[in-house]
Design a binder for these strands. Structure first.
Lengths: 241, 241
DNA sequence: TGTACATCAGTGAACGCGCGTTCACTGATGTAC
DNA sequence: TGTACATCAGTGAACGCGCGTTCACTGATGTAC
């Protein structure tokens, strides 16, 4: 039935290579025209094959789109994880490094960013396969907060008390996300994550046109302010042990 | 040449009516399939006319799209302005009323919201005509801050000092936007506006799936927190001599 | 108040294009004996 | 090591559809004298 793990033969290798090629070309076309305009025929044309051949690799256009979405989440997830300077660095530095890297990636890959953080493609329903990949950037950011809480270099943010419904939702996140972290901080973290993507989207989608001109400085300022509200303190690093 | 203001004749009235009808049907189709799928032929079909007839009213598909965008900005602008309880109310109450109304509108008009705040339609360039309409909601929100500053019920937010590049950009906004308001507060206001749209987009575009369940409570909490950071204080209202 | 002309709305056919997907097929690659 | 069969990749034609826009046209509505 399925090709087992033993079949590292030429056919399987060629297949994997072509899947990669198709996605590469599709991603390239996405860059130029956006997700709605992504076309099976255009992709196969660029690959020099006949349009029907793609059905050996993807059962439909939507499946190709799904593959691209997962790849894109993974690409930005990689960027975030590799940008993290790690526990040795100050929490604020880590926050700025990761969010800055995500923004840089987004600026360089606007359409791919829009594919995952822009308006959903109409008629397309994201399958649950995307969830894990989608969680990687938020996980990297939550990691900072978790480490900071463990090292106790975090100030408790002087928060409004949480309304019960919000507390309940956030409490439910705690066990899997950040066991040692107070509920109010987790709520702040969700807001902060919202701000990261909100700020990048505002910039890339043109809503700060004629408002902000130095986008680098603006984004860093916003992220510094957001980090402060998260209780990631400014000067200290380390702690831990 | 152009039909003068005197020609309030049947022809001009019919024309205006049909322009309205076309936009109504187009908006309706937008709701069902999104902006990329908006089709001249589908619109005219639903109106019972031949596809070429629309060129009497809109020179191209893009112009129809532009008209829809402006109308949408105006629709949400109306919503925001009408939701404002006015100077008599506490700043926080005004903030929650306006942002809550914008969110309600967005939930009820997801595709229209996506048209203006989602990913830009590829290949489409928004003409400058949209600027004024686009400014109405942010203007309504800035109005709260301006009034609060004038009445002095606003606490200075204890802010990080602004980096020079950010200060310069924000300073440039001040004269036209909020003359009496400190630069740091204006910077905060831009962040707050980013958060309003960021939070709504996160909810509507599915990024809080399995994270937040009570979206009403969450949004209000986020907006209360944002208002507090803006220096709109919680209990007091009025002031203003 | 009536006529001649200009303006405009809407028609219907056509141009030229693109799309996703199905289907029977040819050859090449792999597998089992 | 060689042969018979199964699997798979890719072809090429076709189906049935949709799209935006142009163009010459028919009639109806408006305007100037």
């Amino acid at each position: 039935m399925t090709v087992g793990p033993a079949s590292r033969n030429a056919r399987a290798l060629a297949r994997a290579e072509l899947v990669r090629e198709i996605k590469r070309v599709a991603r390239h076309q996405l860059t130029e025209a956006g997700a709605a305009a992504l076309s099976i025929r255009a992709v196969t044309r660029e690959l020099g094959m006949v349009s029907s051949a793609i059905y050996r690799y993807f059962p439909s256009r939507d499946d190709l789109l799904t593959a691209l979405i997962i790849d894109t989440y993974d690409a930005v997830g990689d960027v975030a994880e590799q940008a993290d300077p790690g526990r040795a660095a100050a929490p604020v530095a880590r926050w700025l490094a990761i969010t800055g890297a995500v923004r840089s990636w987004a600026c360089a890959h606007v359409q791919e960013y829009a594919l995952i953080f822009g308006s959903p493609v109409p008629g397309y329903v994201a399958p649950p396969d995307t969830i894990d990949a989608a969680a990687r950037v938020p996980n990297a950011l939550v990691g900072i907060i978790r480490d900071a809480a463990a090292a106790d270099v975090r100030d408790q943010p002087s928060d409004l008390s949480l309304p019960p419904a919000v507390a309940a939702d956030v409490e439910a996140l705690r066990p899997s996300l950040a066991p040692g972290v107070p509920v109010a901080v987790i709520a702040r973290a969700v807001m902060a994550w919202t701000m990261v993507i909100g700020a990048i989207s505002f910039e890339l989608f043109g809503h700060l046109q004629n408002v902000i001109h130095d986008f680098d400085a603006w984004f860093e300022h916003v992220m510094r302010t957001t980090a402060a509200e998260l209780g990631l303190d400014q000067e200290e690093g380390r702690g831990h042990g």
